[in-house]
Every structure is written in C-alpha cells, then in structure tokens.
Amino acid sequence: MKTQIIQRGGVILAAMTACLAGASSTAQAVPDAPVGHSRASEVQAAGLSYSYWYRPKHVKSIGGKCGKKVIAEASGRGPMTLRIDETRSLSSTFSKSLSINYKALTAAVGWDVTKSRSITVSGSKEVPRGKYGVLKAYTRYSGKMFDVYNVYNPYKHKLVAKNKKAYKPIGVCYKFTKS
C-alpha cells in the first residue's frame, strides 16, 4: 500500500492507493482518519462505526420521544403504592448503520455522543383496592436530525445520507396499567 500527500489550495490531504493482488486495476481508498488522529481508535474501540471524512450538516432539533425498551418496572395488587427508585446509565442512540466523524457530530448536536449519561428513575403510582397495577419506566430522549456529507474533497462536499438522527437520554417516561 502506498501513501501520497496531495496539497490543494493550502489543504493537505492524505490519499491512499491500494493495489489489489491478482487484479489488473488499482482502487482508490479514502483513509479513515489522518495519521495521529486518536479519536478514531477510541470510537472504534467502543464498537461504533467511524469515518473521519463524514461530517454532519443541517442539524436541527426534533421533538423528544420515549424509548421502547422498559428500563424499570414495578407491579402488585392494590391497595398499595407502586414505587420505582433506581439510577441507570444510558447511552445516546443513533440512526442505524451510521458512519460519521463523532467529534464533529458531538460539536454539531451539543453533547458527547460517545458517552453514557446517568438517569435517576424515580416514580410512584397508587393501585386501587382489588386491582392489579403495573408501572413501567422508559427512557425519554431529546433528539437532533442532520444530513451526512463526505468532506474529503474540499471543493465539493458529497451528500452521503439524509435525515439521520441522534438522541440523548434526558429523563424518564412512565406507563401505568391496571386490571
């Protein structure tokens, strides 16, 4: 594999040319990150897909939502008070198969997308006599929507994906049912 440095308009880009063994053609590959870029290895170690050249643009807030996965639950027959008191560590969520520069995404959305947050789950609900109640807690998220662009070419940024989403945990939603 051969690496060459290209300078365009004062911006230095690293280009890598990969020769395929047994093939008669040469493939151009965009590097994942410039030499010495440590953030890529941190994010990849966390199991996230990372591309140094993919950046978010056109970031806008979207409404909050409740998650679908139950994070805490209490149930019982009345008369009684169902109570949930826990602290959970919850991580940000992203659109599926998102490959992006997480440092740029962190700056664009306003929170560190690679770190978990500690959320306190605390709630109670009265269950009437003769009824069976179930109190479930779900994560409440605040979100941002953005487009992803490949900024490898400094003269023309190429749209890679539209309407991708990132959510951060901000609290808890509750659902109470009785029968």
Rank of each mutant, 00 (worst) to 15 (best):
I100Y: 03
Y167L: 10
F146R: 08
V127L: 05
D85A: 15
A137W: 07
Y155S: 15
T120N: 09
I170T: 13
V127H: 05
V113P: 02
R140Q: 13
E126D: 14
G110I: 08
S95D: 06
T139K: 00
K103V: 02
K96P: 05
M80I: 08
V134H: 04
S99W: 13
G110H: 07
D112W: 08
N101I: 04
A104I: 01
K162Y: 11
K131F: 10
R88V: 12
P79I: 03
M145C: 08
E73P: 03
S142K: 07
R117E: 05
G123C: 13
P79H: 09
G130R: 06
I84H: 08
P128Q: 14
L159W: 12
Y149M: 10
S75D: 11
K131S: 11
S122K: 15
R88D: 00
V70S: 10
S91D: 15
L105D: 00
K96S: 07
G78C: 06
M145N: 07
V113W: 01
L159Y: 12
T106N: 07
A161T: 14
A137D: 08
K136S: 15
K125G: 11
E126I: 11
T81D: 09
K162S: 15
K96W: 04
K144T: 03
K125I: 05
N153I: 01
R117M: 12
V70N: 09
T87Y: 03
D112Q: 10
K115A: 09
I84E: 04
E86R: 13
A108N: 07
Y132I: 01
Y138P: 09
K168C: 00
S95W: 06
K131D: 11
E86G: 03
